[in-house]
Amino acid sequence: MKNKLIVTLTTVYGSRQYSLGQVARYLVAFFVIVSAVSFFISNWLLVKTSDDLASLEEDHQQLTDQYEMMLGTQTLYKNELDELSSSLSKVANERDQLQEENVRMGELQLSLGENLNELETLLNVPDTGDVSADRLETLTMMANQRLFMLNSMPNGLPIQAIRINDGFGMRMHPLRKKPVLHKGIDYKAEIGTPVYATADGVVEFSGNKGDGYGRQVILLHNFGFRTAYAHLNKMVVSSGEFVHKGQKIAESGNTGQSTGPHLHYEVRHLYKPINPAPFVAWNIANFDTIFTTVKSVKWASLKNLYPLNQTVQP
């Protein structure tokens, strides 16, 4: 009995006993030991695996957090990059606009220079090369002053004539046959040719005085000037009307003491006839010539009148 191992198995049918020899006992003991060792090793491996798994899960969570952080940072960078791209686009557009503005300013500067040169040529003043705003203002004031004078006093042609028959001065009267002062200029023209006012003014007389001038229109202008248009066929304005320079006031004819169709044109200052020729030739380019050519008018006092007393240095 010492060398035998009895194993008892109990079931519902009863108990049975089995005897094992020494080798069998060793095998069973070895099996038990191996099972116990395997159990402890398995438990150790399970615990270690659990720890490793927990560590891996923690690492995974950290990686996940880092990934999400990187995604957030990338999104932030992308937004900043988009804002930077938008800012660069705006800067580029502003740069392009500034370049276009510079081109326009250059064109305007060139245009202003050309206009100033044309205005200086028109006014017959020296070209200074100055294209400043002050220069433009000075030339504009000068032009306005000259235009005011040219609209206020007689200048230019009263009619598109065929030719001049007689000028101002002493001549043999064609009907009286004796020397008399011819007080104006006779312009040969077909009957019905338009006659124009040579300055702004008011109609002092429109009709026939029976004084040899036939049908006539007399205009009263600024600064004591008058103009007379005689031997007319038809008047289109009446006494008291205001007229402007270049306005049609009559049609030429052959009425009164006339030897043929023509317009007799006179310029008077304080009722005194003066030679119309300098006034006919007077314009904005030769503006200053009238003040030295016509000496019977006291021009010096004009400079004291407004707006002619504005300082202008061409």
Rank of each mutant, 00 (worst) to 15 (best):
Y271Q: 15
G246Y: 10
H262L: 09
G246F: 11
Y271L: 13
H269M: 04
G256R: 01
N254K: 13
E266K: 01
N275G: 04
G253C: 06
A277E: 14
G260W: 08
I249S: 08
T259L: 14
Q247F: 03
P276W: 00
H262N: 11
F279H: 14
H269I: 06
V267E: 02
G253P: 05
L263N: 06
I249T: 07
P273M: 11
H269A: 05
T255I: 05
Q247Y: 03
Y271R: 15
S258G: 14
R268Y: 01
V280M: 11
Y265N: 08
P273G: 10
S258D: 14
P278V: 12
R268P: 00
S258H: 13
F279G: 05
L263C: 07
I249V: 10
N275V: 01
S252M: 05
E251N: 10
G256L: 08
P278Q: 12
K272Q: 15
A277N: 03
G253L: 05
H262Y: 12
N275C: 04
P276I: 03
T255K: 02
I274E: 10
N254C: 13
E251G: 06
L270D: 15
Y265S: 09
L263D: 09
G246C: 10
S258L: 14
N254Y: 13
Q257G: 05
T259E: 13
P278I: 12
S252H: 00
P273Y: 08
K245W: 10
P276F: 02
K272P: 02
Y271T: 15
H264N: 09
L270T: 13
R268F: 03
Q247N: 04
A277K: 05
Y271C: 11
Y265I: 09
H269F: 13
K248P: 02
P278T: 12
G260Q: 07
G256Q: 07
L263V: 05
I249P: 07
A277V: 04
G253E: 02
E251A: 09
G253S: 06
A277P: 00
L270F: 15
Q257I: 11
P276N: 02
G260Y: 07
P278N: 12
P261S: 15
S258K: 11
P276Q: 01
G260N: 08
Y271N: 15
A281M: 08
P276G: 04
Y271H: 15
V280C: 03
H269P: 03
E251R: 05
P261Y: 00
G256N: 07
R268V: 01
